[in-house]
């Protein structure tokens, strides 16, 4: 793997890794909940919460939704 250039990039890449790990954990939780729970309403609610959290993390940290109203960062 090629090395990372700048300190700024390293910070950003590490943040990405953290978000990915959180997403992976949430996915595993989803799966475990799904195979172990029998109540459909509770399952739907839990899955909706988990999916919402994953969606939020991806839009905020991966898709940089805030740049829509905050503009492009200067370098």
């Amino acid at each position: 793997m090629s090395t990372l250039n700048s300190a700024a990039e390293q910070v950003a890449q590490r943040r990405g890794l953290m978000v990915f790990l959180a997403l992976a954990v949430l996915t595993v939780i989803e799966y475990i909940v799904a195979v172990s729970l029998d109540s459909v309403p509770v399952l739907v609610a839990l899955l909706a919460v988990a999916a919402g959290a994953k969606c939020w993390a991806i839009t905020v940290y991966f898709m940089h939704v805030s740049k829509l109203w905050r503009g492009e960062e200067a370098h």
Partner: peptide
């Protein structure tokens, strides 16, 4: 994909 974008923005 996130790594790719971050690398490009930082000139890598």
């Amino acid at each position: 994909a996130y790594r790719a974008e971050t690398a490009f923005t930082h000139g890598n």
